[in-house]
Structure formats: C-alpha cells, structure tokens
Amino acid sequence: MKTKANAVTSQAFPESQTGRVKSFIATCKSQKALLLMTVPFVIWVFVFKYLPVWGWTMAFQDFKPARSFSEQEWVGFKHFAFLFTDDRFLGVLRNTLAQSLINLVLGFVTAIGLAVLINELTNVKFKRVVQTISYLPHFLSWVVAAALISSLLSMDGIINELLIGLNIIDDKILWLGVGEYFWGILAASDIWKNVGWNTIIYLAAISMIDMEQYEAAKIDGASRLQRIKYITIPGMKPVIVVLLIMNMGYIIEAGFEAQYLLGNGQNIEYSENIDVFVINYGISMFNFSLATAAGIFKTVISLIFLIAANSFSKKMGQGGLY
C-alpha cells in the first residue's frame, strides 16, 4: 500500500500511527471513484472464486446437503483412502495421465511440423487460405466437434468406408464402442481441432528469425531441408522450450469436454478421466464428498506440476509464467 500518493500525503502528517491511518483514509477518499470501480468486483471474486475453496472441507466429511456445517460428520481422509484403493479410480488416474501425455506429445509435434510447412509455402494467398481453414475448428464448440467426429466414426461414416475401400479393414468397426481406440480418437480429435491454432505462436517465432541467415545459407548451397533443420528449427527452440515446460505444468489438465461428449458406456474404461469422474460421481450420483476429494487431488497435483515447471523454466533462464 506504499504508493507514491500515500508517501506524498503522509509528509504532511507526523510519522505516527494515527497520522498514517489518517493519510490513508484521505487517499482513499480522493480515490473514491477508483474504489467504486473495483470494490464490487473484489467482493465478486471472493464470493465466486475464493469462497468455493471453503467447500473443500466436504472432502473430509460425509457431506449431506440437508445438514448445516456444524452438523456434518467428519471422517478425515476416508474418501481419499477409498479413492486409492478403488479400481475404478486407479483406472481413471491411468486414463488422465495417458490422455494428457499422448495429447501433449502429439499436439506439440504436429503443431511444430505444420508451422514449419506453412512457413515454407511460397504463395502468400494460398498460405493465408490454408491458415484460415486450419484455425477454424478451434472456434467450434466441443459439442459441434463431437457431433462431427461421431458422425465420421459411425458405422456408415466415411472412416469405415475409406478403410474398407482401401482394404485396410474387412468389417466395419464401431470406433467409439471399442475402449482401446479411445485414446487415439481423442488425440486425433484434439489435433484436428487445435493444430492450426497452435501453429500461430510458432509462426510468430519463425517470423522473428533473421532473413539474412536464409540468404547466406542459400548462397552456401544449403538445401531446403537443411535450411529448415539448421535455421528454422533452432530459431524456434526458445519458444518450443518455454511452451513445453509450461504445458508440462498442465499435464493433468486434459480437459473433460471431449472425454465426456465422446465417452459412452462401452468406452468408459478408457475415456473417464478425473474431471469426468467428478461429474459422474458428484453430479449424477450425488456423492459430493468423494467427487470433491477427487477434485482436490487433481488441483493439488496440477499446482505442484505448475510450480515445478515454472521454477524449472526460471532456472533454464526462460522466464516463468509468473
């Protein structure tokens, strides 16, 4: 609270406690308008963002919505203990990690690859059209995306027709009905939706590379692929490292929309991740305590990952997120 204005006004008062308080009140009065602009929203943020954290206590109770807080029965770590002995939750944990890791690695490689290839396009107009088309799916909702994907993958969808036409499979496959395929379908859907959008940041990095390097390499007789390998990729390296580290922080955040919307009774063993588990237990089965415990577990793990990734990034000299 030691702002310039405060320091200036406090000179007029003796450096006593009351003087400071007085000058502080005077500053507040003079900034009435700014306070009016922020105070309602500070209250809002406390109610809607901070207050729910209080609800974490539920995970340590056998929470019954009808009872008041003092009437709740405290059970310690019972729900956490249950989670880690429950086969379903262990499967959920496996799904969360597998889905995130696959999405992270494939998402990264495809976005970098596509950015390099887009950068190599020589026709400006064609380049712009390709960019516009590839960004588009990012702006569609996951509901729309899931409708498109499930239509493609249905029994009489084009994927089955194509694969049978190419003699890769003999019989039609109900793709979303086979659990083992789910991680792959999820990764492919995620790439389809976001790969174009994710190239933006890499293209921005490429545009910072000095053109003279390319000219010099050309004169030295470097081929197209050599120029990509020795100039473009190294030029993107700082951005790649920062994004990789930051994304490691979000490793447990695989989202839930695609999993929830594409998931069904047949693939649940592979589709259900922590977020979907929370929805299924909490919202559909009203087991608030268990669902909250799972949610807390996720938040804590992801916070640890985020802090670790951030301090790692600072150590690497790349600057942190905060």
Binding site: V42, V53, G55, A291, T299
Partner: peptide
C-alpha cells in the same frame, strides 16, 4: 493487492462440486 487477488484465481479453483453448491 487487487491485481494479485485476481491473478491468483488463474492458479486454483474451488472445483466443480463446491461451485455447484455455491
């Protein structure tokens, strides 16, 4: 202080069920 109060919300959230009950 106001800036920090808002930025903090980027790093945690109360979770689905507590928010629902709120």
């Amino acid at each position: 202080s106001v800036t920090i109060i808002f930025i903090m919300t980027m790093y945690f959230n109360g979770g689905l069920i507590p928010t629902y009950l709120l």
